[in-house]
Simulated scan of single mutants.
Amino acid sequence: MPRADFYLIGKPRFREQPLLLVCELARKAVNAGQPLLVLAASREQAEALDDLMWSFDPDEYLPHQIAGLDEDEADVEVLIAPPDQSPPMRPLVLNLRDEPVPGGFERVLEVVPADPAARGPLRERWKHYQAQGLELNKHDM
């Protein structure tokens, strides 16, 4: 059964830089041997995440790239897709866009902003995934 995991940002370091949480979740996926597709909200966000994945942990490299730049992207462990790219869906997807992921995944990760005023779209996504029959989980980060 597909599932959706919502990660609520709480810790100060994630509040200051929400993309750090994305890096941590990507590291967990790579360490678990699960290729991850990150759906970025914008080209700028995709590039910022690409830069951060190079530097967030000086002792560990996360194999990653932005979709559309290289033909070998099917093999890369973390594929970052800006909105103008539509790579094939992967079993594990991290969604940073405003709309829910339509399907084709086994598990979707959603990052919930620290600011309660910004959480409206995520409540809608929660309801959407619930209506699709997904198993829902919430994690405080």
Results as ranks from 00 to 15, higher is better:
47 E>Q: 15
55 S>N: 13
9 I>W: 09
91 P>N: 09
119 R>E: 04
10 G>E: 14
138 K>Y: 14
141 M>Q: 02
68 G>Q: 08
83 P>E: 06
7 Y>D: 04
132 Q>I: 01
141 M>V: 02
60 E>T: 08
58 P>A: 12
19 L>M: 14
19 L>K: 15
70 D>I: 01
115 D>F: 08
54 W>C: 06
32 A>S: 14
28 K>G: 09
19 L>S: 11
29 A>F: 12
134 L>E: 05
79 L>M: 07
127 K>G: 01
24 E>L: 08
124 E>N: 12
109 L>D: 15
36 L>E: 04
110 E>V: 02
81 A>S: 14
77 E>Q: 14
28 K>Q: 14
64 H>R: 08
62 L>C: 09
101 V>A: 10
49 L>E: 03
88 P>G: 06
83 P>F: 04
12 P>E: 06
37 L>D: 15
115 D>K: 14
52 L>D: 01
23 C>H: 03
30 V>T: 13
19 L>H: 03
111 V>Q: 04
3 R>M: 05
25 L>S: 06
45 Q>G: 14
135 E>P: 01
85 Q>D: 11
15 R>F: 01
14 F>I: 08
141 M>T: 02
68 G>S: 10
77 E>W: 15
17 Q>C: 09
134 L>K: 01
3 R>P: 07
115 D>M: 13
25 L>D: 10
78 V>H: 10
60 E>V: 12
63 P>Y: 00
60 E>Y: 12
133 G>M: 09
5 D>P: 08
108 V>H: 11
73 E>L: 05
126 W>Q: 04
83 P>T: 10
104 G>M: 11
77 E>M: 15
50 D>G: 02
58 P>K: 05
48 A>W: 00
130 Q>E: 08
